[in-house]
Nucleic acid binder design. Structure first.
Lengths: 242, 242
DNA sequence: GTCTATAATGAGATAGAC
DNA sequence: GTCTATCTCATTATAGAC
């Protein structure tokens, strides 16, 4: 995947669009193009989540969106950039909510550090709650992010968007686990990510392994195991011999 | 990815090849085609690991292998089947060694169950040890398996090969953690997988996050954190409120 | 902003000579 | 078993009419 500069859509040039008054097609005042744009964005999210970035073509995406093929490039410039915008849209929301949850945990803890459980929950809940609510868009987003997280090709892209969140929580964990070495905290954060990703990727594997005792899309149950697992794991890093 | 029946290579038809005596090209008695076959297998492993299954073409793979394009289909029938053989080759080895390590742990534990640490180590070590030794083939394999593990499209393929191992270790964990609910064990195994996958995928992300304190390819250090993390996490599942 | 049409390239797979 | 050549179809992206 080559990283290119985004062409086409000239919207951020500061002022108003050069053309005449924007045509409206619903009573909320959205421009006509915005609904196509949104349709492509949603279709791309679903297709990328199910098939992976390289496994899905713009043709498929625009078909699913019910729009013309050429509109993908018109609105997003390139497939790469479409992926970027798919990620950015929801990543912003999760980031903000995680930071707010972390601040709330700090407020509740007063002068002391929040517990590991509180920090881990502040990280996991904002995204997993939306999966518990069975929001399809978020489910596809979660599946996509999981795949990008593992793939060596996409770390640059995901890093730009996800690293700021990571640094906040690594810092919080450091304070909550004063006896753990920095190295342990960094790896611990990766393990937290990895465990979460297994829950988010919804591959259906746990159904097979458990003969139906567990279900990939029962995120509420998974979260009840995930928080103690990760918290217990992080605590164990404090006492590990080194 | 369509699952197809593998054509072309007629070797398993029971008897000897129909053609005359196999041409030899080295003193170990390998047939000429076997070295091409191996070259393709190795190139595919590397390319798939770095670019993902859909991100790499047979053209690229055969170029890397230094052989003609048509030979990929001649020897493996299809791209799908090539992937299958790439995985199967090493999965067998890891499976066998994991089972042997588990049996050894049982022998050492005598009448009691092996410790969680011993079970987790028996699972992790056979594969991670090869990464510690910086074996490039295994590194690419590990990266590939990590990606397949997350992708919804490939669970059927990976399941066939990897599920038997999983069931053995889930069973062992059940005995080592008698107070944990079955549900907790299944999810715990997934979290173990997820944490391991983060170590194996070697995306370089931890370098960025830790400003060089940790390194993606320092698997020995990662393993020293991974075993206590996972073991502590699994133990915490026993006492989790439900 | 949307459409038709097409450029330009790449994909997996195969037929047939050697 | 290997190679050349090619089939057939899909790919991203763009040009230009409306």
């Amino acid at each position: 995947m080559k990283v290119r500069t985004a062409p086409a859509r000239k919207r951020s040039s500061g002022g108003l669009p050069k053309r005449g008054p924007a045509p409206r097609d619903d009573r909320n005042g959205a421009r006509r193009g915005d609904t196509t744009r949104l349709a492509i964005l949603n279709a791309a999210e679903r297709c990328f989540g199910e098939g992976g970035f390289d496994g899905v073509s713009l043709r498929t995406i625009t078909e699913v969106a019910g729009v013309d093929l050429a509109l993908a490039n018109y609105h997003f410039g390139s497939k790469d950039n479409l992926l970027r915008e798919v990620i950015a849209r929801r990543a912003r929301i999760v980031h903000d909510e995680r930071i707010r949850a972390l601040e709330e945990a700090r407020r509740l803890a007063g002068a002391r550090s929040p517990s590991v459980e509180a920090i881990v929950t502040a990280f996991l809940e904002p995204l997993l709650r939306r999966l518990i609510n069975r929001d399809q868009g978020w489910q596809h987003y979660a599946s996509l992010v999981s795949q990008l997280d593992i793939s060596p090709k996409f770390t640059v892209l995901t890093g730009d968007v996800l690293d700021p969140t990571a640094l906040h929580f690594i810092n919080a964990l450091r304070l909550a686990l004063p006896k753990a070495a920095p190295r342990a905290i960094y790896w611990g954060y990766m393990f937290l990510l990895g465990s979460m990703v297994q829950v988010m990727s919804a591959t259906g594997r746990i159904e097979r392994l458990s003969h139906g005792v567990c279900e990939s899309d029962d995120i509420a149950s998974a979260l009840r195991e995930l928080v103690p697992f990760v918290s217990g794991g992080l605590r164990a890093l404090q006492t590990a011999p080194r």
